[in-house]
Simulated scan of single mutants.
Amino acid sequence: MAEILIIEDDDVIGEFIGAILQKEKHEIRLAYSALEGLSTFRMWNFDLILLDLGLPDQDGMEVLKKIRETSQVPIIIISARDHEDNKVEALDLGADDYITKPFGTPELLARIRTALRHAASTPEAQNEVKKIINGDLCIDIEHHRVTKNGQLIHLTPNEYKIIQVLGENLGKVLTHTYLSQKVWGPYSNESQTLRVNMSNIRKKIETNPVEPEYILTEIGIGYRMLEK
């Protein structure tokens, strides 16, 4: 069970999402504006926030920025804005995921489970992780190697860094900028190099690189390692 804040100006959508989450035994609080959402956020400790961008009194991006000034609580954007630039901006500002309206209930619940599970992994706990097991894929962090079905996959150092970052953020969308900076440094912009590396990784880990089972491309945004 989680404490979830829904910031959504459409009361029909907000109450519908709330009813779905209450059936999953979550505790729900609804806010219908940016001001009410920020006030509620400051009054209570939440495990997750669902945030609409098209709020009546302030853009949801500003709400996202303000929350990120003081908290790393998982935030999933739920918005009718489906332009890639909006998604990239929200993710780069610190959103954990982005769902475009209309969406299905199973997708919403799956994204929420992923965000909550990822938040439960504290930095201390992550430091103790020696291996990430995802289906037949094993990322051995201690020895910097990857195997599939027990067979060693030969990766370059940068290919390994990419796959480790994706594995550590299992189920999350990572933007091109985020991945590039994690692999090549805080001021790099290696989007094209990243694409080349990703193509090589898929050839090595996917049964059919054209229909990947492990690493999904979020077109114009970045990549997500699927949970198996």
Rank of each mutant, 00 (worst) to 15 (best):
217 T>V: 13
90 A>L: 06
24 E>H: 08
128 E>S: 10
22 Q>N: 08
188 S>F: 06
196 V>Q: 12
185 G>S: 07
187 Y>V: 02
157 P>D: 11
159 E>T: 06
102 P>T: 05
22 Q>I: 12
166 L>Y: 07
219 I>G: 04
151 Q>V: 08
197 N>I: 00
223 Y>E: 09
112 I>V: 12
61 M>I: 05
28 I>E: 00
44 W>N: 15
136 D>Y: 09
16 F>M: 14
37 G>D: 05
88 V>H: 00
17 I>C: 03
131 K>Y: 11
77 I>M: 09
174 L>I: 02
14 G>K: 09
204 K>E: 10
166 L>M: 11
113 R>Q: 14
128 E>I: 05
176 H>R: 00
169 N>I: 02
4 I>D: 00
40 T>W: 06
205 I>W: 13
222 G>V: 02
11 D>C: 05
168 E>T: 01
138 C>W: 09
197 N>E: 14
48 L>Q: 04
48 L>C: 08
118 H>W: 09
117 R>I: 04
94 G>F: 07
120 A>D: 14
34 A>Y: 03
152 L>M: 11
100 T>F: 06
157 P>W: 15
218 E>S: 03
214 Y>C: 00
126 Q>N: 12
140 D>Y: 08
38 L>I: 09
1 M>Q: 09
93 L>C: 07
28 I>N: 03
78 I>N: 00
72 Q>H: 08
206 E>L: 06
82 D>E: 13
19 A>M: 14
208 N>T: 03
219 I>M: 02
25 K>V: 08
67 I>P: 14
72 Q>R: 14
72 Q>D: 15
162 I>T: 06
214 Y>I: 01
208 N>A: 02
51 L>T: 04
67 I>L: 13
126 Q>L: 15
164 Q>T: 01
138 C>F: 04
166 L>A: 07
175 T>H: 02
162 I>L: 13
41 F>T: 01
11 D>F: 03
32 Y>G: 04
142 E>I: 01
100 T>Q: 02
69 E>P: 13
182 K>P: 08
133 I>F: 11
93 L>I: 07
60 G>T: 04
127 N>Y: 12
22 Q>P: 05
218 E>R: 09
169 N>F: 12
120 A>E: 15
158 N>F: 13
117 R>D: 09
40 T>L: 12
31 A>D: 10
65 K>C: 07
172 K>Y: 03
66 K>S: 08
111 R>E: 01
228 K>W: 15
195 R>M: 14
218 E>F: 06
65 K>A: 12
175 T>N: 01
17 I>T: 03
176 H>C: 00
6 I>V: 15
101 K>D: 13
119 A>S: 11
25 K>C: 07
56 P>S: 10
60 G>H: 05
158 N>M: 12
110 A>P: 09
141 I>H: 09
77 I>L: 10
127 N>I: 08
110 A>N: 11
2 A>K: 03
129 V>L: 14
125 A>S: 13
86 N>T: 05
186 P>K: 05
139 I>F: 10
